[in-house]
Design a protein around this nucleic acid. Structure first.
Lengths: 332, 332
DNA sequence: TTTATTTCTGCAAGCGCTTGCAGAAATGAT
DNA sequence: ATCATTTCTGCAAGCGCTTGCAGAAATAAA
C-alpha cells in the first residue's frame, strides 16, 4: 500500500506538504506542488479513507436509515441517495430498521457512535422531541418524508396538502364530485394532509366536505382491499376513490374488480407515489408522482451542506408532486 | 465520543486490556473481563470503526455491489444482506451501479481501495476472467446470482436448471404440453439454464423439445409484452407460457388480457422470482420462489467466513427455488 | 519454601493522515 | 543593506485502536 510517506520521499518533501497538496486545504508553492503531483501520479497513491476519517474525526460516508428496503418506495429512495452520494464521491451506509419502530432511532444512535456526521433519516412514527434531540446532536442530520416546523430547513419532504389538492382537482375536473377516501391508519401527518388538501379543492368548488366518506387501513395492498370493502358497506354513491398511496389504490382496484366493478367506468381511482406497481396494474393507475429521486439528491446535498463551513443551500422548501395520467380515472 | 481510554479509566485497567475484551482475540481473566464489560455497558462505548480499520488494515463493513436498488429484486436482496449483517454486528456499504456495466467493477475497485475485505458482488454481465481476478485479490469476495465453476464455493446462487425443471413439471402435470418460453435477452446463463431445465422435464415425458417456441426480450414488464407478441405472431397453439421472471410474466399477462385472452383459462402463465408483483397482478401469478433472503444471509456469512481464520462453512451448494401456487395456471 | 511454568496485564510503538505551531525562506519597505 | 512582513514548509503530536513484548501475578512442581 502506498502512503503519504512514500510520495513524500519520492518528492523530497515532508508528509505534511503532501497532505496539503492532496487535500488542497492549504497553500503550497507552485514548484513544490508540481513535484508532489508528479510523485503522486508516479506512485499511484490513493489516500487511505480510514486514516483520513480518523484524523478528521469524521466519516466520509453518509448514513441512511430507512424502514424497509424491500419496499419499492424505500428501495428507490436508497438508490437515489446512493447515486447522488456517488456523484459527490461519498459512500453510503444503509441501515434497515425492519419496520420495528424503535430500531430507527437505535440505528441513528449507532451511526452517531460510529462517527457519522451525515445521516439521512426516514422516520415517521416517533415523537418529534426525539428527532429534535437527534438534530441537536448531529448537525448533518436530515429528516426525510416528514416535516417538523422547528427544523424546516432540514426536512426534505413532499407537499402533501398540495398533492392531495392536485389529485382531487383532477378528479373534480373530470366530473367526479362524489369522492371517497382510502387513507392510511398510520399516525403520521401525511394522510391527513393529503385529505386536507383534497378537501380544499372540493370546498373551492362548493362541495360539502363535512360528510366525506373515509376508510382507514394499513397503507398496503391488503389495506386497500379492506378499506374499499368498508367504503362499499357504507355507501354505493361514490364514483371516485382518492387513495393514500399506490399500494392501497391497487388493493382497492383489485377488490373492486373481483366484485365485478369496472374501473374506471363505474369507479375511478387515483393513487399517490407513482411506484412501478402503478404501471403494472390494470388499468394502469393514474397517480401523483412522488419525486423521490430529486428529493434523495437534495437530501444528500443538504446534509453535506449542513456540515460544511460554507453553506450554499438556503431556503427550505417542499417538493411538489406531479400528476401522472394513466387509465384509472374516467375522463370527460 | 467515548473511547477505549474512557472505558479503561473507569474500569481501572489499560486500554490494551479493554481492547482485548472487546475484540475477544486474547485471554483476559474473568474478573477483569467483568469489570471491563460493566464499564462498557455503563459508558455505552462503541468501537470507532475507522480507528479499528486503520489499525487492522481492514474494514468492519461489508460492501454490497448491486445493479439497481430501485428494482424490487435487488431491494429485497439488499434488505436481506443488511439484516443478516446487522445480526452479526457488521454494517454494510452499498454501491449502486445504475445498470451501467462497467460500474460494478469500478465500485468493487473503489471498495478495495477503501480497505474492504468483504464484498458481495452481483454482476452477471462482465467476463468471468475479470471476476476471477477480483476474487484472487479479495479473499472475502462473494459472487451472487451467478455461478463460475472455478470459484463454486464462493458463488451464492439459485439452481436455475432445477427451477426451470420444476416450473415446467408443474405445467406438464397440469396437462399443458404445449409450452412456449418467454426469456431474457441478457447474455447471462440464467435464461438458458431455466429453459434447459424445462426441456429436461419435457423430454422426460417424451415431448419433442427441438421446436420449442421461444421469444427473447428485456427481462422487464415491457419485455414481457413484446415477447408475448412475438409468440402470438409465430403460433396460436401454445397453452402455457413459462416466463423468465415475474416481470416478464406480468407483462405477458397484461398484453394477453388487453387482447382479450383469458388467463388462465386459455393460456396459463408461470413466473420466476416471487416478487411482490406476483401477488398484485391479476390473476395472481404462480411462480418459482427465489429464496433471496436465505441467500443474502448465506452470502454474508460466507464472506465473513472466507476472511476468518477458522472456516466453518464447507461445501458449496445452489439454492433450490420453490413453487408457489397462485392462480395463473389452470389446473386439472 | 523455593523455583519453574503458565497466565495475565500494561507499555509503547505503530496504522496513515491532519494540523497548530514555529522556523526558514522570500518579499517588501525603509 | 537592514529590518519587518508575508509565504511556505517541516516538526511533532494526536485521531482511537491493536499487538508484540516483557514484566507481574498466580499456579504448579520440587
Amino acid at each position: 500500500m502506498i502512503t503519504l510517506k512514500h510520495v513524500a520521499e519520492l518528492a523530497g518533501v515532508s508528509t505534511s506538504t503532501v497532505s496539503r497538496v492532496v487535500s488542497g486545504k492549504d497553500v503550497v508553492s507552485k514548484s513544490v506542488k508540481d513535484k508532489v503531483e508528479k510523485a503522486i501520479k508516479k506512485t499511484g497513491y490513493i489516500p487511505n479513507v480510514n486514516a483520513r476519517a480518523l484524523a478528521n474525526k469524521n466519516s466520509t460516508s453518509i448514513g441512511l436509515v430507512t424502514p424497509d428496503l424491500s419496499l419499492a418506495f424505500f428501495g428507490t429512495l436508497a438508490a437515489g441517495v446512493i447515486d447522488a452520494a456517488d456523484d459527490l464521491g461519498v459512500t453510503v451506509d444503509i441501515c434497515n430498521s425492519r419496520g420495528k419502530d424503535q430500531n430507527n432511532l437505535n440505528a441513528v444512535k449507532t451511526l452517531i457512535k460510529r462517527g457519522f456526521n451525515n445521516i439521512l433519516l426516514d422516520e415517521s412514527h416517533c415523537a418529534e422531541s426525539k428527532i429534535l434531540e437527534l438534530c441537536a446532536e448531529v448537525p448533518g442530520l436530515v429528516l426525510m418524508n416528514r416535516f417538523i416546523p422547528q427544523i424546516a430547513e432540514r426536512c426534505v419532504c413532499v407537499d402533501n396538502v398540495t398533492g392531495g389538492n392536485m389529485a382531487a382537482s383532477y378528479l373534480l375536473d373530470n366530473l367526479h364530485n362524489n369522492i371517497a377516501f382510502i387513507t392510511s391508519n398510520s399516525e403520521i401527518a401525511d394522510p391527513f394532509d393529503r385529505i386536507h388538501g383534497a378537501k380544499i379543492a372540493m370546498a373551492k368548488r362548493g362541495i360539502d366536505t363535512n360528510n366525506c366518506l373515509v376508510a382507514q387501513a394499513a397503507p398496503t395492498i391488503d389495506g386497500g382491499k379492506q378499506a374499499v370493502l368498508e367504503l362499499l358497506n357504507k355507501s354505493d354513491e361514490f364514483t371516485a376513490i382518492l387513495a393514500y398511496n399506490d399500494n392501497m389504490a391497487v388493493g382497492a382496484m383489485n377488490e373492486l374488480q373481483d366484485r365485478g366493478v369496472r374501473i374506471p367506468d363505474e369507479i375511478s381511482v387515483i393513487g399517490f407515489d407513482d411506484l412501478a406497481i402503478s404501471t403494472v396494474c390494470r388499468p394502469a393507475l393514474t397517480t401523483m408522482h412522488y419525486p423521490i429521486r430529486e428529493m434523495a439528491d437534495y437530501a444528500v446535498k443538504l446534509s453535506l451542506d449542513l456540515t460544511s463551513s460554507k453553506k450554499t443551500l438556503g431556503t427550505s422548501h417542499k417538493f411538489i408532486p406531479k400528476l401522472i395520467e394513466r387509465s384509472s380515472v374516467s375522463k370527460i
